[in-house]
Amino acid sequence: MTGPVRVTPCPDGPLLVRGADVVTDEDGTDHPVTRPVVALCVCGKSGRRPWCDDTHRSIRRST
């Protein structure tokens, strides 16, 4: 993909990332981006990190 990578934070939610080819997680593992826009986990609780799986919603509900 060419062009700039754009990052959009969502209130109480993930980061939306557009234009990225690869996301490298904190262990140094590369995760290829296969969608035009991906949601990156910010809460740290996703079961699919680095991707958001909406787990933040369950956390918010139970607190």
Partner: peptide, 14 residues
């Protein structure tokens, strides 16, 4: 749909 719709939710809402 777990990953796709976590992103689509934000796009559709906002």
């Amino acid at each position: 749909h777990v990953e796709a719709d976590a992103a689509h939710e934000q796009i559709a809402l906002r």
